[in-house]
Design a binder for these strands. Structure first.
Lengths: 351, 351
DNA sequence: CTGAAAGCGCTAACAG
DNA sequence: CTGTTAGCGCTTTCAG
């Protein structure tokens, strides 16, 4: 019978401790510790006795307690502060980080911020209080200087998708500007000059960068976008759907749409289908999404690579945890235009 | 300057401890503890002094250490052993659990099993070693008796999507059998008798239940399925795509398809589109997916409700953590047939 | 090769 | 109201 003490509630048995194993095996706690941690220098018979006791008690070391005492202090867990666990971008990022962590026996804490700056701080606080060894952050707030102490304490921090503000740390970003510009060039090449911009909340840095790329690419072609065809702050499918419906019902509607975010793209498709104009109005969306290739027309997108971003972020984290040092660096992950049909609908200015 | 000791590596400063706060505030550690935990009975001036010291040092309690000592032993973290963090079902489940946990200040550890039984055990082990307060498990192995000690030790465990084997614990399952039967009835009502079954790996319980529902519903209509039209063990889009292509190219092809899983459904759609027969061959898929309503034809599905499953699972967990007791129970979450077009394509046996 | 003593950061259980 | 002592489960340090 294990530690007779701590009979917490009802009829719950206590979990066996290292001491219980030691007593059952007739050795000292330290010897059990050595066996558990695979340290050399324990005689064969004692090793066997310890292993037998471990099996008999179904003993599992308390990792939390050991990392409290261990000199490294590492908890072998890292934290991911994501936008929304349920959206495909966050999910792919999460999965890529998990895969990298798995090889090292590291576990992941993850949480959703939902574009809420307070929630970002709460999550970071909760994760650091639980001794996460490192932080991957997709920020929602506009200032992360509150993390300075964390960083100077030696916790690796990497920002993903959006740059850190007021905090010199590594970042892994999509090439938003150039990706958006590529979308515009593509549409212009297919004969469009009246291209609408439909974008996410302007306080999101990626949205600003994409809009910047859009504007500059147009101006490269000597086109001044009509302000009527620029709609910002679309953060739901529904908002986007309505904006597109309005846009296409107005006088002199655009012949092409550039939708700067996932949900915005889907909302636009919905509107186009309702109006029955999905084969007339060209569309290029930023960020790929599942089944984009199965729609009719299939949807041309500027694809990001969240898995690659996760891999890069994880690699930066683990290299820092391994003691490598370097000046904080921003890593751009290329986006890729995937022509599928909707972006190749030709406009009136061909040739 | 905080604890001058433990100058771990390079130039990393040490994180301030409760002792550091106590010294700076000129009080005992216990007083700091009281302030941090909001215990009543500390004089206003000392409270203020402590708070000032906390702010000055940017002190954050070490939750790991406190839960080691705390009588409850709770880590305020629960674990989710999921199929694949990146798939929409797992992601929705994860998110629902997170939302329920957030209200209580509980964090989530999550990991992907990828249908690998060993990985299931590894994850459970890793999570329990880190003192997760409870476990939500979507199992991949065919025996979970290894969790018996965990359960008897008082850790709440809930299975989701698939029942536990050899372990009496709560489960939250979709009504797979009836959902599949509903799909078949729907197709028969629309004039189909030659209905193909395309399903996932037979070692997955949900796949078996859906097949069972399929068979029984057919037999309710006096239909004996042709063995040629039953394809099991499809676990990727590609496998499904090829199976459907083969099926529709053979002699006497089915007039309707029942695809018993997400990826299988998408693979089938891909095949139908390639053959240009998506408007002739009826299709009902098990499990909803994003954009199903935007395809042409829009895809009729038997929708599961992963969010609801997550909510129920979380509620069971937290009620048990709060001390409620009951005999392990299975909760069925209803599925819902959503007619969208593909399932209403009529077959030859109408009227 | 093995164990005893000390202590990681914090709180329980007392005493004042 | 406040502090002291002990100890959570484990590992470090150091003595045998």
């Amino acid at each position: 019978m294990p530690t007779a003490a701590t009979e917490t509630a009802s009829n719950a048995k206590a979990r066996p401790t290292l001491r219980d194993v030691a007593m059952l095996a007739g050795v000292s706690p330290k010897t059990v510790s050595r066996v558990v941690n695979g340290e050399a220098g324990v005689s064969a018979p004692k090793t066997a006795a310890v292993q037998r006791a471990i099996a008999q008690l179904d003993y599992r070391p308390n990792f939390t307690a050991s990392s409290l005492r261990r000199s490294s202090g590492r908890s072998a867990a890292i934290a991911a502060v994501l936008e929304d666990l349920a959206n495909p971008f966050s999910a792919a990022l999460h999965r890529a980080i998990e895969d990298a962590a798995r090889d090292r026996g590291v576990l992941i804490f993850a949480g959703s911020v939902d574009e809420n700056p307070e929630r970002e701080r709460e999550l970071v606080r909760a994760f650091t209080m639980r001794q996460a060894d490192a932080l991957v952050v997709v920020p929602a707030s506009d200032d992360q200087s509150y993390l300075a102490n964390e960083v100077s304490t030696g916790t690796p921090v990497v920002f993903v998708d959006r740059p850190p503000v007021g905090l010199p740390v590594d970042a892994v970003l999509t090439d938003n500007h150039d990706g958006a510009a590529a979308a515009v060039h593509h549409l212009v090449r297919h004969g469009h000059r009246d291209i609408a911009y439909l974008g996410d909340l302007r306080n999101i840095p990626t949205a600003r960068q994409r809009f910047q790329g859009f504007k500059e690419a147009l101006s490269d072609h000597g086109i001044r976008p009509s302000t009527a065809a620029i709609v910002h702050d679309l953060h739901t499918e529904r908002a986007s759907e309505e904006a597109v419906r309005r846009l296409l019902s107005a006088g002199s509607p655009p012949t092409a749409l550039f939708t700067a975010q996932n949900l915005v793209t889907v909302g636009a498709i919905r509107a186009l289908q309702q109006l029955g104009r999905q084969h007339e109005v060209a569309l290029v969306g930023f960020d790929d999404f599942p089944l984009a290739d199965l729609l009719q027309p299939a949807v041309t997108v500027v694809a990001q690579d969240p898995s690659e971003m996760g891999r890069v972020a994880a690699s930066l984290i683990f290299r820092r945890l391994d003691g490598e040092q370097w000046r904080p660096t921003t890593h751009l992950v290329a986006s890729r235009l995937i022509p599928r049909g909707s972006g190749e609908i030709t406009g009136p200015h061909r040739g």
